[in-house]
Design a protein around this nucleic acid. Sequence first.
DNA 1: TATTCGCAAGTTTTT
DNA 2: CTTGCGAATA
Length: 813
Amino acid sequence: MREISTDEILGPLNEQQRAAVTQIDGPLLILAGPGSGKTRVITHRIANIIAHGVPSFNVIALTFTNKAAEEMRVRLKRLVPDNRTWTGTFHRFCSRLLREHASLVGLKPNFTIYDMGDSKKVMKQAIANVEVDLRHYSPDMLINQISNVKSSGITAADFQPRPGHSLDAIVAKVYPEYQKLLKMANGVDFDDLLLHAVDLLTNSPEIRKALDLKCTYMMVDEYQDTNLAQYKLIRLLNHSVQNLAVTGDPDQSIYGWRGANIRNILEFEKDYPAVNVVRLEQNYRSTKSILRVADQLISNNRQRKEKKLVTNNAEGEPARLVTFPSPQDEGFDIADSIALAVQKGERRPRDFAILYRANYLSRSLEHSLRSVGVPYQVVNGHEFYQRKEIKDVMGYLHLLNNPDDNVALERVINVPPRKIGKVTLTRLRNFAQDSNISMLEAARNAEQIDSISKSPTGKIASFVSMYDRLASVPTEEVELVLKAILEETGYRDWLTDDGSEEGFERARNVDELVVAAQEYDRDHPDPTESGGLEGYLEQASLVSDTDIWESEADFVTLMTLHGAKGLEFPCVYIVGLEDGILPHERSSGDDDEIEEERRLLFVGITRAQEQLQISRCMNRFRKGSYWPAIASRFLMELPREEMQIFEPASSHHFDEEALADSIADLDPWMHDGLPSYDINDDVGPSIEIHDPPEDGDGSLGDVVRESIAVAQSESGTTGDFSNSGEGATGKTAAAFPRIVTAAQIEAEQAAMQAHVRLHPESYKVDMEVEHPEYGIGVIVEITGKGTKRTATVDFERLGKKRFRLAFCNLRVN
DNA sequence: TATTCGCAAGTTTTT
DNA sequence: CTTGCGAATA
């Protein structure tokens, strides 16, 4: 191993950072403000520990996201090229541990990790099985409650309902049943990964001790986000030796709703009395003015460890506080200003991030960015894996890897349709549960099940034999397994059978999955080292949304405030600062929850390096129509006197009722990404915030696209991230963000020019129109208005059909 | 008994 | 818009 010089490790550090890095033994609490070089401290500290003779494989670093783990791994490798330090997420750590000792917690090593949707199905089944009265609670509330119990490290056997607590009483019944079903399916949910690991280490002292001795130096990142189960896990692994260093920032604790316990960090000093506390307060990220905004906001929180934020960075521009009439204005204004900055050559798309409280808020922003021609990526990780076609194909993979996976079997047994229906399935399920075998096993013996009549038996038998043919395919290369599935089941052909555009879209997604599998195989050639089917499935289950973010590519980033934690951008827009959105209406209960929402905004603000704009709208689309929106209370907690404030001009002829009407009529247009006409025109001019771009001569978009093309070709050569090591995230995950490239936008616009879809009022009788399915026809009658405006079209081949013009896909040549 | 169609309801954050 | 659920239909 190469000798690392002390200079190399300590040189680039400030005094506080150095204090954290040079402490090797004993407990250490690093309170790290945003942008304070936390990752640098962790990696340099590990390097220092190794430099002092500790074998690198005795050091382990736990993070929350794969992205953070990956970054740590890469940066550590730069300092200590051939280290064998394990870096990864809690969940991955536990998953590894459980696969090794599965039988000790009643699992088999090939267990399935269920996502939320699948867990929900199991939960519904459990609820049905125990016949509880759910009149006063929804399944979602129950899922939540059980998740909370699990996050506290309480197993089904240990659970004690509080007397007189009706939800607890239900949990006491459903929780054990839910666990029973999971166990039968050889599956775990996310909470189980932690819970079972804690269970394992608690009940197997030898394993606990061995692991404790192996992990002699432990680092935990984002400690403020740990829940009780994670806390227990950490304690179990720091029993014999307490060389534990945790980093965190109570002001950035934003996962309380998930069971994260801010107490863990606030009381770390009580848990480990010998602790040394280091504060990293020097900020290297943001301008002074941005930092003051963050500081003043967070000072409204009572539950916190007082912490200063100081920086030597420039004063910078004042932050901007803007009020827009509507989300359309908000979107177009942001898109325009980004396009302008890119056009002038001041910025590149990747310098910008637009952050919001909830995913649905990205819609109008996407629409605007498209119209203006700015490439963007929406970081919404599970979206891809949540698609039906992807879940179906993954279902087959899961069933092959884990034949007990009943959820997967129920998902795929009749997809594509094999004429095996609900009733048959229920009988199969009941038989399996009664005989304590898997549903696949039950299917093998279908002819012995009295309740199942003759005709479905044959269908089931042919499904089973198809499964057996697939099961004979070697699982070392995921790509081959995937292709065999598509071939054998005819799934892909079934998608495109009806010739619809949607079908082709789905088939493309499936193809993308095959490409991802290819890449996975390439990056994980060794089946024993997380390669092969099992490794692939595990990784697919444990990717999160920020993991999927492409930092190298030149796109504007759209993501939730939660997703943005740990990242930084030169220019940040935070949108939707409205009561009910931020703070969110479903969390505006007590002070604690308001404080968490405030921290969420604090996280958003502190992502910004140079420019920050916070905005809100006076109207927001909710429950089918536009409603006046109230400004977020947080806006009054900002240092308004030093910010640039923009309100709509008073002369602006703004008629709320007319706006609501006009936009309600237009709503279908908002979602479908077809900017046939500019909603702005109906609303009136947007407020003047900066110089409006030159009138529409089309040159703006072109210039933007051109500079984007250049940027992309540059990043293509420089941005090759050669990730060796374990490659937890790897490129597989990187293939899935919803990216809209300049080329795509161009193609779309070209297509739109060829076939133009019109405003509902613009269609006239006798017009010739084209429909994607029915072909060419002539409008013979038009009635109604607004969204009810309906045309009757006489098609050459199929005769007359009626269409609601606002929704249909009729185009004029 | 499976499939398809129509209608109603609903949209926080995520490992 | 999307998803899920129930009723009609083949």
